[in-house]
Amino acid sequence: MYEDYIYGMELKHSKHLCSVTVGYLTAEGANTISQVKCLKYLTVSELSCKTLPETISNVWSLQALRVNHSYSLRELPQSIGKLKNCNEITMLPNSIGKLQRLRTLNLSRCEELKSLPDSIGDCQMISSIDLCNCEKLTVLPDSIGRNEKLRVLRLIFTKIERLPSIITTLRNLECLDLQGSSELVDLPEGIGNLEKLQVLNLKDCKKLGGMPIGIGQLSRLQKLGLFVVGKGEKFAGISELANVSRIGEELRIKGISHVLDPNDAHMACLKVEIENKLTEVGPKVDD
């Protein structure tokens, strides 16, 4: 019986209880646990059900959920996404790849998360991945290139240094938000292949050395945030900026001193300025 493991009614009045370990969990037991106000850590063993009870998602303070030896468990409840404070997660299990119907993965503010498992590429239906404020995240697996339905990828305030080149094959990607990724040094070649991309937010990417050639092919781009004129021919020239005509928010341009032909800068910047979208050009280019 469930009562052999925890004293149900007493749990409701446990003001300082932050950790619970149970041998098995029923819907009634999950409902009782959900009323523990300060619960941070929950360990469940030997589940005989195919899914966790829905009410487990009502534990707003939960930071860690550990499920052991639960061979019948097939899926997590849809409402599991309501858990907002799981900020001590360091990694996801490889078994996440078995969640064939998973559409949204929100791990924002998981400050200890260092990487995603390769099996993330097996989540064929996933359309949105949010890794904002995952401050220890430095890389993405190449397997993310298999997430063909991915539309939104948020990497705000991560420590990503480089994106895998295969990301340029994600033809359905509409939003790639890298704002505040202070360690980002470059973008992959072929980014112009992302024909549906509307947001490529590079605001405050302080180490970005330049833009990849072909960025001007992003004809649907509406938000960029930052355009860096890199030094050398391997980077896109500022003239490509003239082809991105839909940008509707402020745009900062860095490295304008690297422009070889002042006419390119004049024409590109003029087109943006006419639409009242240019906020900062940087050092003035002599005519």
Score class of each variant (00 low, 15 high):
residue 168 T to R: 02
residue 12 K to P: 00
residue 26 T to R: 02
residue 277 K to I: 08
residue 269 C to D: 03
residue 31 N to I: 07
residue 145 G to A: 15
residue 229 V to E: 01
residue 92 L to T: 04
residue 208 L to W: 02
residue 245 S to V: 10
residue 240 E to K: 01
residue 189 E to F: 04
residue 205 C to N: 01
residue 67 V to H: 05
residue 65 L to F: 05
residue 274 I to P: 00
residue 220 R to Q: 14
residue 228 V to T: 05
residue 201 N to K: 09
residue 150 L to S: 04
residue 88 E to Q: 13
residue 281 V to S: 06
residue 79 S to Q: 11
residue 146 R to I: 03
residue 107 L to T: 14
residue 145 G to E: 15
residue 4 D to C: 05
residue 70 S to E: 05
residue 177 D to K: 00
residue 50 K to T: 15
residue 196 K to T: 09
residue 67 V to F: 11
residue 238 I to N: 00
residue 164 P to Q: 06
residue 174 E to K: 09
residue 42 L to I: 06
residue 226 L to Y: 01
residue 186 D to T: 12
residue 175 C to T: 12
residue 72 S to D: 14
residue 267 M to G: 05
residue 69 H to S: 15
residue 120 I to L: 10
residue 68 N to C: 12
residue 184 L to T: 00
residue 122 D to Q: 14
residue 11 L to N: 00
residue 176 L to S: 02
residue 208 L to S: 01
residue 66 R to W: 11
residue 149 K to D: 15
residue 115 S to H: 10
residue 149 K to S: 12
residue 189 E to S: 14
residue 19 S to F: 11
residue 117 P to T: 12
residue 176 L to T: 02
residue 160 I to M: 04
residue 269 C to G: 03
residue 28 E to D: 15
residue 195 E to F: 08
residue 60 W to H: 13
residue 235 F to R: 00
residue 14 S to E: 12
residue 19 S to H: 14
residue 195 E to A: 12
residue 137 L to Y: 02
residue 224 L to N: 02
residue 284 K to H: 10
residue 92 L to Q: 06
residue 276 N to W: 07
residue 129 I to M: 03
residue 79 S to R: 12
residue 49 C to E: 10
residue 208 L to G: 00
residue 152 V to L: 11
residue 85 N to Q: 15
residue 32 T to A: 12
residue 88 E to W: 14
residue 116 L to W: 02
residue 252 R to F: 07
residue 271 K to H: 09
residue 169 T to F: 12
residue 37 K to A: 10
residue 115 S to M: 13
